[in-house]
Simulated scan of single mutants.
Amino acid sequence: MAPLGLRARWTVVTVAAIVLFGAAAAFGIAAFSDYQRQQAKPSGMLTAEAGSAGIAAVAGSEADVARIVFRNTALGADYGFVAAVPLTDPRGARVVTDVSCDRVYATNEYEMCLRVNRGVVTTFSADLLDGNGALVKSWPLPGMPSRTRISADSTLVSFSAFITGESYSTIGFAIATQIAEVNGPDSGTLEDFALTVGGKPVTAADRNIWGVTFTSDANVFYATAASGGRTWLVRGDRAARTLVAVRDGVECPSISPDGTRIAYKKVVSTSPTTTWTVAVLDLATNEEVVIPEPNSVDDQVEWLNDSTVIYGLLRADDSGASDVWSAPSDGSSAPTLLIEHAWSPAVIR
């Protein structure tokens, strides 16, 4: 057989390219259609009819029902939306609202919703919503959402977001944190507060502060400060604009409802990746109890009550999936599963 001419060879190549492109396009369309079907199908979790569009919705329309609010992570049409379960029945039917958040915290009055607003240009925001999901205030974020809290009396909010890097395990990450009054001015970024460790000022350019937890005193809060590869539990004073280190090796603190203890995560390993566990500090005795959690916990702990802590935990065998677990704060027993397919819990008592 005579060899193909140049034009014939180009014809063969062109036809082959068209066939390959068509196959790739068909595969892409099929994959996208399958993704849409996965997103649209029911999640498989037991849900109840929402009484309203916001955090007031749970097991009916009673806004004063004690409940746990969280980000629903069950695959399906409700993925990423704020949900709630009664405090008396955490594994029962969940109410899913029409509010979508990447990180959430709530009280009876307000909800803080940290969002990634995807579009032609991706933006990030910290949105304060009322109980019906209506926007009250909004602040732009410099990057990926991290942590948020609301004071028990619903007068103060805090929010943190990464400036560079994508997680706390990233070397050289930078993070910005603010405290704001719901009906007043912002305190500015906490990086502007004066940081003192061991009686000496820390002014290094790599200072980071995040993970605020509010006390019953509107002027006093606790947070994490970091510099030079070290982290500290710091006590903040809003009026004096100061941060004073009170303990080494603490991240993402959360004060107990009675104000006597602080739960937090602490590093237990840095090889091959950073691993954290949960610990609880007694503020009166300075004694620390480590929770017997075998998995790495990268979350800001929440208190279910004065004797129990809860936190989100990623599933090691299922990328992107997460659950909320609970454990006695005295470390007396192993953690137990509290809410399946959930993240970023907030307890409304």
Rank of each mutant, 00 (worst) to 15 (best):
T196G: 07
F221S: 10
A16C: 09
T336C: 10
G119K: 04
A24Q: 12
S329R: 05
G51N: 04
G22N: 03
T215S: 10
I179Y: 00
L135K: 15
A239E: 07
A74G: 13
R207Y: 01
E166G: 14
A74E: 02
G54V: 01
T88F: 08
P145Q: 06
A180I: 01
V99N: 02
A174V: 07
M144L: 14
N305V: 00
A63G: 08
E49H: 14
A50H: 02
A40R: 13
G198K: 06
A180Q: 05
V278Q: 04
A48Q: 15
A346G: 08
G199W: 07
A334Y: 02
S256L: 04
D127L: 09
D127V: 10
A24F: 11
G28N: 12
M112T: 07
V99M: 08
A239H: 05
A225H: 07
G28V: 06
S332M: 08
E181V: 00
R241F: 01
Q39N: 15
D206Y: 10
T308V: 02
W210P: 02
T73A: 01
E109I: 00
G320T: 10
D153C: 09
F214D: 00
A8N: 13
E287A: 14
S151H: 09
L338M: 04
A161G: 08
T73D: 11
V13N: 13
T155Q: 10
T47E: 13
D248Y: 03
W343T: 02
D237N: 15
T123C: 12
A152I: 07
A346R: 00
R7L: 08
W139P: 02
R349Q: 15
A174I: 06
F81P: 03
Q38I: 10
I29S: 11
E181D: 12
Q38N: 06
P335F: 01
S100F: 04
A194Y: 12
G228M: 11
S256N: 04
T260M: 09
A327P: 03
V82F: 00
E62N: 15
A83G: 09
G44D: 12
T277I: 09
R94Q: 13
T11D: 11
E302W: 01
R349M: 13
P201E: 08
S158H: 01
L283S: 07
R9I: 13
T14V: 08
L6F: 09
G133Q: 09
S344L: 05
F173Q: 07
V136S: 03
F162C: 03
A279K: 03
D299Q: 05
V202T: 11
I175L: 10
Q300K: 09
W343S: 05
T170I: 09
R230D: 15
L128K: 10
T189M: 06
D192C: 05
N219E: 13
A204V: 04
R247C: 06
S326M: 09
S146M: 11
D306T: 10
D318H: 03
G5R: 15
G228W: 04
E49I: 11
I262G: 01
P201Q: 07
T270W: 01
V58A: 07
T196N: 13
L114C: 08
S160W: 01
G80W: 00
C252P: 11
V99F: 01
L304N: 01
T47N: 14
D192H: 13
D299V: 05
R37H: 09
G312E: 03
T177Y: 00
T122H: 02
Q39V: 09
A226H: 05
G228A: 04
V12E: 14
V297A: 01
A84R: 06
L281H: 05
V104M: 06
G51D: 13
L190Y: 00
